[in-house]
Design a protein around this nucleic acid. Structure first.
Lengths: 252, 252
DNA sequence: CAGTGGTCTAGACCACCAT
DNA sequence: TGGTGGTCTAGACCACTGG
């Protein structure tokens, strides 16, 4: 497969590896290089453009990262088939979309208190009798006076700097834990389910009981995989959705 | 910050860059290197281990990919703070979990036919009067005689190799399109919502009407972003969930 | 200005694959 | 055995940051 030579400018401020990456990417997108076909060898590209093989490898490694080609030692480098059957839903924050719409959103703190550890909480946090106290608080997010989500959060309690109400309204539980406990959140697990909301949740969100909702439970761990935080969030099913893009979109 | 020297073995079959990557990763996990702290400079690591700076850079680039450090030109390289507020739900196939449980699952083809394009379909596929025919089919996935999901799928129809029933049962619509049309799927968009299932869907899945369900609509595009396939899938809310892990898990 | 990371070179040796 | 990608070297020059 012939790669156009005239589009590499070695004196450009744009890195050579990046120019080459874009060049090959474009050929794949246009269909000049089809899935399963092989790229020229690294040595061949290197000598054709009179650039170092290491620079060629840098360009190819970018293509590999983008999932557009794959390399096989001893055989060659080949154009990949777009994988469209993966599902990857990603968002920085479930509420980000709401915020980005520029709506007038507001977080309300419904309740916040120190509670005694009961058996269920100790089970969740895998702690014994020595931990008697947890911080417990509940928040509601609303936009344009419509309530959108309801969250219940728990963390291990440790006396430290006083916590401001504004901090409890911050959606980031890991951030709160990092700032106000001795623990450093290192990883987190989330489980997303659909559910019919309870009467209590329905009343808080102002929707009909049994309406379908997103339910996200988050568990936060420190570096020893000790549970240091837990939250359960309910999101109105008619106001949230997740969108995912797969394959080879151009995003230049 | 001191990095242990004795753990790099230049004669090992394990690449040097990988040993160094693991070495620094471990120090970050253990907390020897804390978020915000700087790594030794590339030159310093290079000379301390008596390895090339390019090799050091390779190790650091792996750490950057893992999200554990970030580099700033002219300043240095720093340990990142784990980002736990992202949400990334990922699965190769929404049904993969079901299959992995080793359950006896089965896909049933409910209906398959060539249909005339109506205005709604032409709108969805952004085609004019020239496309009169679409392939339309519906499938149900069951495991252990319990119906789990229901899917409705459309593709542009083009006369080609005959399609086997087994191919219509395959969950991959992009695969079917690649194999039996002139189009090459290159990208795809999915929207996930929660919904209360309709009476028809409830009857098919054997659940109560208005039960909460996952609803995933997928649109498949070719390289020119022309729509070449569309599907709508309904998944029982009480049988599916999405799990996401964030932060610095070890997965050795 | 000195020090940092970013790019690039022109080689080298190796493991792996196909023939 | 020859060709491929994987690793590694010992330099070089640059752009950017900070004092």
């Amino acid at each position: 497969m012939v790669i156009q030579e005239e589009t590499i400018d070695k004196s450009s401020v744009i890195p050579i590896y990046y120019q080459l990456f874009k060049l090959i990417e474009e050929q794949i997108r246009r269909g000049d290089l089809k899935p399963g076909e092989s790229l020229p060898t690294e040595h061949e590209i290197s000598s054709r453009f009179e650039i170092s093989r290491m620079t060629v490898r840098r360009a190819i490694s970018e293509l590999v990262s983008a999932g557009m080609v794959y390399a096989q030692q001893g055989r060659g480098t080949f154009v990949a088939t777009p994988k469209l059957d993966n599902i990857i839903f990603e968002l920085n924050d479930f509420n980000q979309e709401i915020k980005q719409r520029g709506l007038n959103y507001k977080t309300t703190l419904l309740e916040a208190k120190i509670i005694k550890a009961d058996a269920e909480l100790r089970e969740k946090f895998q702690v014994g009798e020595e931990h008697k106290r947890f911080l417990y608080f509940r928040t509601v997010l609303a936009a344009e006076h419509e309530r959108l989500s309801y969250e219940v959060k728990y963390t291990l309690y440790s006396k430290s700097k006083p916590i401001l109400e504004s901090e409890l309204k911050d959606p980031s539980l890991p951030g709160l834990i990092a700032a106000h406990t001795e623990y450093m959140p290192m990883s987190s697990k989330r489980v997303l389910q659909v559910a019919a909301c309870s009467e209590k949740e329905a009343a808080i969100l102002g929707i009909a009981p049994c309406s379908p909702v997103f339910l996200i439970e988050q568990t936060i761990y420190d570096q020893d995989l000790k549970t240091v935080g837990w939250s359960k969030a309910v999101y109105r099913g008619d106001r949230y959705k997740l969108t995912s893009y797969d394959g080879w979109y151009k995003k230049d």
